[in-house]
Amino acid sequence: MMMSLGVVDREFHVFRGLPDADGEHIGEVKSFTVPVQPGWVVLDALLYLQAHNAPDLAIRWNCKAAKCGSCAAEINGLPSLMCKTRLDHMPLDKPVLVRPMRTFPLIKDLVTDVSWNYEINKRITPFTPYNDDQSTWRYFQEDADRVQEFRKCIECFLCQNSCHVIRHHRKFNHFAGPRFLVRLASLEMHPLDVADRIPFIKEEAGIGLCNITKCCTERCPEDIRITDNAIIPLKERVVDRYYDPITMLLHKIGIK
């Protein structure tokens, strides 16, 4: 796509507000006009607003290069990274709507409280290698490839925000969300790891609540094939342990 040339005035509708006592998003969408330069992303426009129109506009961002995952928000209704959403890829005549992630309690303006995610991570059994003698550890790039895809995750929590199990059904207490199913997959498929997280995946991470509708995969800015490569393989592993009579029998007599 060609870049539009020169500076263009564009309209932005930006949510501004504070939470009520329960963390609900209370506020309104305010309209701003920003002189947009070629190549700008949404975050550029918001930082311009901060510097010129609204110095106290709360935005969470760090690297502005799609590597840290801080600036997740909802742009024109789609969960996206503000630093990766190009303005010249959006219709020129329509205003750009920016709202905070709806799934999480509001802190202020575009910033939400994502601490729930950090709590989930603490409950996951960490990497547990099969022995302590590191000099014997060997595995091929093929094994690394599979796990590295999951470890690309920048923890922007857009998948958590997009997942209807959390977003609409609010299964915060019964479901770990795509991000942590990805993390669990990275541990379960680690060639050296021997910890058994399958019961956790079924009971506490609640993988059965996922109905593989793939919004996590659609919205992942790192293009991790969350559903196909992490969640479905984990579901199949849960089937091996809990549903398939043949593999259950084999597991019981010690064949894996």
């Binding site: 939470p19 006592a21 329960d22 963390g23 609900e24 909802e74 024109n76 209704g77 789609l78 219709p91 329509k94 709507l97 709202r99 999480f104 309690p105 409280d113 601490s115 729930w116 609409h168 059904h169 609010r170 915060f172 207490n173």
Partner: peptide
């Protein structure tokens, strides 16, 4: 704050309600 928010029931503004502007 978090607890109250997380334990709330289904929040829905109605079928098809979205800020999305695509088809």
């Amino acid at each position: 704050m978090l607890e109250a928010f997380l334990s709330k029931n289904l929040v829905t503004q109605g079928f098809g309600k979205t800020d999305r502007k695509d088809a």
